[in-house]
Design a protein around this nucleic acid. Structure first.
Lengths: 229, 229
DNA sequence: TCAAAAGTGTTCACCGTACACCCATGG
DNA sequence: CCATGGGTGTACGGTGAACACTTTTGA
């Protein structure tokens, strides 16, 4: 006999996106001011409901695209949140994703449309539902990832200086790093290309720009290489 | 105005449990022979649907308890699986959990009731739906965990020998380890208690038994200690 | 010529790894 | 007395961490 699926309880399934950016100074989080009840006017992660013919990854990408206009962004499923009353209106399971984007890349019009705003990680306000919990988990995961994978490049412009890269690692890991040791480790990884160009905005001497070599990186990953900073 | 939740698509939410055990020889996986359609008679992870007033963790524990009679078991949420047709009967999102249990601890009657059986990891058959994919992911996670947390103790009896512990690490990591180096590392962790007792079954000389000191371990974890094998 | 950031090497301590022999015991 | 698994220590190379001075150039 067939099992009767009808006796089971259905639920809404949502995705919520923890969107990280970096502005050369601070690790930032993109939040929206919620435009509808419940919790209208409060700060919230950008989210959306999973559609009938959609996979979770697709839903998360759709949500991110709606807010930023960006596709092909680094994104990773984080965790499923399921407190019974996390959404007071209806039972909703939310699967959180986190994304790393270049803070200068996105479409500012869209941000306005959603009353979205970047917050420094250290100044994130109280969020709706269990969104602060989601953020905590995302931060932990990001820190761990950062110390084993060179994920951080997703957060930088295409060309960047060593100083920027180091600063990024510092804000993610929450600690200061030694310039010399940092460069040594990064160079050892051998996934950067040093350009002939210099960035002249930060000093009189100017500092060389680098690019991330994605192919070299992929190659190394598939060779079972592990990165550690 | 309130947002109208009714326009959204609901789905069934399930949990599936990847249940690992260890029999001094091999890493094993507990599977059930499915007793109902679809895919009746095929091998499958033990799963169940999330109930209205239940959190995912609770559902996973309930499922595990139903099959093994065990409570308070090491369990961790793994990943949300959402392919549109993963369950052909109805749209079902499944959140996979993996559990580490002592293979001698569970209730054998319950296993019979569910036509459940242990399989060596290397001999796992084709499973229904996306369950093989779930297993792959669980194995990867377990390997990573094992090399940073002393997770393996959950899989051993309360008292165990060094040889057993090493064998366990070997089957999880899929490589042979050096006896002397292994002991050094484990002793360095300082989370084991050496007992006065010996296990005499494995050799004429007998080998000392150890216990895992959970409190010491917790203490170290909360001090920010990281374990690495 | 000076201020401000960029760039660069060395030393030391510790950790991971490779490796081989003696010990205790029951049969 | 011997076969079997248990138990132990050392030497070496590599990696992470600490640390300071020189270079460039626009103002």
């Amino acid at each position: 006999m067939d099992y009767n699926y009808n006796q089971e309880d259905k639920a809404l399934v949502a995705v919520d996106c923890i969107i990280f950016g970096f502005d050369e100074e601070d690790l930032k989080l993109l939040l929206i001011k919620r435009g509808f009840e419940p919790e209208r006017g409060k700060w919230s992660l950008m989210g959306g409901f999973l559609k009938k013919n959609e996979v979770l990854d697709e839903a998360a990408n759709r949500v991110l695209y709606t807010l930023t206009g960006l596709n092909d962004v680094y994104m990773e499923q984080l965790y499923g949140f399921s407190k019974v009353d996390r959404d007071p209106v209806e039972r909703t399971i939310s699967v959180a994703y986190y994304a790393l984007i270049n803070i200068n890349d996105h479409n500012p019009k869209l941000l306005d449309q959603h009353s979205a705003q970047w917050f420094s990680i250290s100044e994130v306000p109280q969020l709706i539902f269990d969104h602060n919990e989601m953020l905590d988990r995302a931060l932990k995961r990001l820190r761990r990832r950062t110390s084993t994978n060179p994920v951080g490049f997703e957060l930088l412009p295409k060309k960047f200086t060593m100083r920027q890269l180091q600063k990024l690692y510092e804000v993610i890991l929450g600690e200061e790093l030694d310039k010399r040791n940092f460069q040594k480790k990064i160079k050892q990884m051998d996934v950067l290309v040093k350009l002939k160009e210099k960035d002249m905005t930060s000093s009189r001497k100017g500092s060389f720009l680098y690019e991330f070599d994605k192919e070299k990186y992929q190659e190394k990953v598939s060779d079972g290489f592990t990165f550690r900073v």
